[in-house]
Design a protein around this nucleic acid. Structure first.
Ligand SMILES: [Mn+2]
Ligand SMILES: [Mn+2]
Ligand SMILES: [Mn+2]
Ligand SMILES: [Mn+2]
Lengths: 217, 217
DNA sequence: TATTATTTTTAGACAAATCTAAATTTATAT
DNA sequence: ATATAAATTTAGATTTGTCTAAAAATAATA
């Protein structure tokens, strides 16, 4: 139906949308997709012709409902594949994204629905991001960043903001993986670094920078 | 490394090779890939430049070892994905091929090796075709066509020659699926149609045309 | 062997997606 | 308000893979 490239553009524009009504800029898309502004302009015209987005010269773009649908289905496929790679094939949570970038473009409704069933209809991917439903419904998360949590409250690691490979590897090394039970037991005034206790046992220290990128509930 | 198109050409040429030394013709490739001879000539030149095949104008092509390796790895991925779709996602054996045509092009050594492990290192795909190993080794099948089997010998359905969707659907409908134990109990002289008994119980009739496309051991 | 017929290659064009360099528009700062 | 800077678009090329129509080579036939 749509090419890999078209799907990738729609996904990028979807993620860059504030839903504030103001269009997504050419440059932000170019930066996000590691391509040049001129290429973005060309593709935008094509997507506009296909009624996937609204475009006014120099004013940025906004996805139409049709465009949002394609973006959401691509995100759905991406995240379901990530669950498969992590749960069934034992990929690390830092390894799944790259391969899912390819798998998300496989065209088969039957495949994604059978895979979803095989995985037991997961609601979140290995990074805690919600998986849109078949019709694009979203269970939006009510997670909060760990650096805003008050001391002595039990929480569960439920997501990450930074999805980079080095960050995910670092968290894994210090046992901060999805589902980990933890509690903040000390907040340093000076640099807002934290002392945590994991499973009520091991104590670890993390910087505020790390805490800011961890989501808990 | 190689594009979808290049992999598809190499796979097609591999399957069209007799290993008789005589090259694969431009027209046979074009027919097999449902494209035009002129397009094939163009692609052949490109693959020749990349040392994936030997090409002499008007003489047809022969894969180099490098070309065979790429073809075999693509076939390996295709068949492993077919096993996954059939065994884990419960796709019918007539449904797996189309989706595997897409999945075979996913580029990740890690993925295919983990998938292979997850499936328990299968040796054959859902149609009985052997799965090449990581280094291209082949367990060549010693199957025989059902129309050559003598009466009253117990055999096991182990493969098919015709891979078309209607043929596979037909076999499924009459319970002739991979692994089925059966015996020929009557061979009609007139049209060489057969009476079979399945699992020592149910009796069915099949035409010689059907029998010719079934492999047993 | 000369003449058709078939196969294959070349020439020229096209669509998709990208790029660089130049032109144009919008935003910012004196 | 005018000049400068930044963002965006256009112009013109390039790569990959495809096509049609015409030319060239090979094969088949009389
Ligand atoms: Mn991802
Ligand atoms: Mn992608
Ligand atoms: Mn197949
Ligand atoms: Mn393919």
């Amino acid at each position: 139906m749509y090419s890999f490239t078209e799907e990738n553009y729609l996904k990028a524009i979807y993620k860059l949308s504030d839903n504030d009504g103001n269009g997504v800029s050419t440059n932000s898309i170019a930066e996000n997709m590691e391509t040049k502004a001129a290429s973005v302009t060309d593709m935008i015209k094509k997507l506009s012709d296909k009624k996937l987005l609204k475009y006014e010269k120099y004013k940025g773009v906004n996805l139409t409902q049709k465009g949002k649908d394609v973006a959401l289905q691509t995100i759905r496929k991406h995240r379901i594949w990530e669950v498969f790679l992590h749960e069934k094939l034992k990929f690390g949570w830092e390894e799944v994204h790259e391969v899912a970038e390819q798998l998300e473009h496989i065209q088969s409704e039957l495949l994604i629905n059978k895979l979803d069933e095989f995985l037991g209809y997961p609601t979140h991917d290995p990074h805690g991001d919600p998986i849109p439903g078949e019709n694009g419904e979203f269970h939006s998360n009510a997670f909060v960043s760990l650096d805003t949590v008050e001391a002595n409250k039990k929480v569960i690691l439920s997501g990450v903001i930074n999805h980079s490979v080095p960050f995910l590897q670092h968290l894994k090394k210090i046992d901060l993986t999805l589902g980990q039970k933890l509690m903040v037991i000390e907040i340093n005034e000076y640099d807002r670094s934290l002392k945590l206790v994991l499973n009520g046992k091991i104590e670890i220290f993390i910087s505020n920078e790390v805490a800011k990128n961890i989501l808990v509930k």
